[in-house]
């Protein structure tokens, strides 16, 4: 599987955030997006997920399902965890397993209770998510990645609020995904436990057409 961007430009709120960007991400080879605040890391991930239109250029996916968009074959882990505070961790995961899984390409995913155990959350599975700490919520959000199998993972600072043990657990989960042929693009400011990952440097664009 190969996800390629060619000469991509993305506008946000009338401001060009990314211009002339080309890269490729292949199965098993994680790509880290690095750059200062405001350099367009989150914007790029949201655009790949199909949530923002491209102003120019093209994104192509080779080796994916022909009848599904890139976004439908990707997991997006954004700043928000996508969890309902009124529901328990297990109910949240079971919901995402049913609505995000079920694609024709996806092999068997993990059961929600197995995913929670994997991330060390068995003991809080039946508590409402609103009662959990920020790090625990983040772990539940990470468990979403394994209850529904999708080949492309778009991770926006995935290790925010995680302690060292959880970071190590999640690095294992990511390595497992990569060895199964998955694609990972992760926006990050620090190491996320993937050795030898390629880096894509995004820089702030010079302002255009603004008089000094």
């Amino acid at each position: 599987m190969r996800l390629a961007a060619e000469n991509v430009a993305i506008e946000r709120g009338g401001r060009l955030v990314i211009a002339g960007l080309s890269f490729e991400a292949r199965s098993g080879a994680p790509l880290l997006l690095v750059g200062p605040n405001g350099s367009g890391k989150s914007t790029l991930l949201r655009a790949i997920a199909g949530l923002l239109p491209l102003t120019g250029g093209a994104l192509t996916l080779e080796g994916g399902a022909a009848d599904a968009s890139i976004g439908e074959q990707a997991h997006l882990l954004g700043h928000a965890d996508g969890l309902k505070g009124a529901l328990t961790a297990h109910e949240n995961l079971a919901f995402w397993a049913a609505t995000l899984g079920g694609g024709s390409l996806s092999p068997a995913a993990q059961a929600p209770s197995d995913a929670l155990r994997r991330l060390g959350l068995s003991h809080i599975a039946d508590f409402p998510v609103r009662a959990l700490s920020a790090g625990q919520k983040r772990r539940v959000a990470l468990a979403r990645l394994v209850v529904a199998r999708r080949p492309i993972w778009l991770l926006d600072e995935p290790t925010t609020a995680l302690d060292a043990a959880a970071q190590a657990l999640f690095a294992d989960v990511m390595r497992e995904h990569l060895s199964a042929g998955g694609v990972i693009l992760a926006a990050t400011h620090g190491p996320i436990g993937l050795d030898g990952a390629a880096q894509l440097m995004l820089g702030p664009l010079p302002a255009v057409g603004v008089a000094p």
């Binding site: 997006l76 928000a80 965890d81 996508g82 995402w96």
Partner: peptide
Amino acid sequence: DGSLDLLVNA
């Protein structure tokens, strides 16, 4: 809470 971003690609 970000659910809508995920539901768009459900």
